[in-house]
Design a binder for these strands. Structure first.
Lengths: 164, 164
DNA sequence: TTAGGTGCAAACGGTTTGCAATCGA
DNA sequence: TCGATTGCAAACCGTTTGCACCTAA
């Protein structure tokens, strides 16, 4: 996946530029947290970031992970999500326009989708209610294919053949 | 607002029916929490529920408030929301189809809107990604009119008149 | 009578903060 | 050098849980 690696590298460079512009030091820890999140794959929690860092043999204090993630969010390169799980997840903005999230109610898996087709209507709705639109998010909850299949298998045991 | 009162009363009766159906006792505390939430006005947090109860001279333990709210959510008469504030809010389902939320990024005020016009598209999007649609939520963040006006007033001080 | 509810206080878990030691520019 | 960062541990805060006592049916 050379495409994604390129996007991650680009984000990484933008992060360095952002830090330099503000005369903020570029530290080993900030770099490692940034790389962990930019690597993508799934939307990481703080715990997930720490796990990924540990896997790579790196050690960063929890407080520092939180503080680095704050900077990444503030720089606009990472988005913070709250899916009501009791903790937050962090998404590298590798590509824009992914404001939609499909969340499996059973296993918690999160898949993204584009909200392009709503992008025209939402600012209008906001305006109708006296709000000035800044951002939006569309959340769909349901069952992912895997969990649906698992359910079907279970139900099958009870209504296997009509003749039984 | 006799309309809303009627809706609250209807929810209250449905809650009693729901409890009776399950042979669960109807207690003073459950009634008071239900009434506090059904009264509407704003989406209450647990803290808000306790404040409203205190105002009415009632006293219910925090744990009981949590447990009663759990039942109300389970009964389908109340919805639990997480707007990433660090706590949950509870919405009485006085009228259906209010799956949209406008959230002011400055003051946190939440206003609801109907997502009717998206109701057709969302199950299709879910299907495209292999998900079975159950529910959805559309969240718009921006500035409410009051905060926008406050901002305008502040900025005004610095660019008051071009001639100055 | 008794299954279930209540309320206190302690436990929990994610996140934030105070502070002395350390580091980047 | 010097202001900013780091990491530890303690504090925070919303929420959950254990348990002795109480209450609706």
């Amino acid at each position: 996946m050379p495409e994604a690696d390129g996007a991650a590298e680009r984000l990484f460079e933008r992060f360095h530029r952002w830090l330099r512009e503000r005369h903020l030091p570029i530290t080993r820890q900030r770099d490692m947290v940034a790389r962990a999140v930019f690597a993508g794959g799934e939307l990481l929690s703080v715990d997930g970031v720490e796990r990924r860092l540990r896997e790579r043999g790196h050690n960063v204090g929890t407080a520092t992970v939180y503080r680095s993630l704050d900077m990444l969010v503030e720089s606009g390169l990472v988005r913070r999500h709250d899916f009501g799980e009791g903790f937050k997840r962090f998404e590298p903005l590798l590509s824009p326009g992914q404001n939609g999230h499909l969340i499996c109610s059973r296993c918690g898996r999160v898949t993204e989708f584009s909200t392009e087709r709503f992008e025209r209507a939402l600012p209008m709705i906001a305006d109708e209610q006296g709000f000035q639109h800044h951002a939006h998010r569309v959340e769909i909850r349901g069952l992912c294919r895997a969990c649906r299949d698992a359910d079907a298998a279970t139900v099958g045991r009870f209504r296997a053949t009509p003749s039984s």
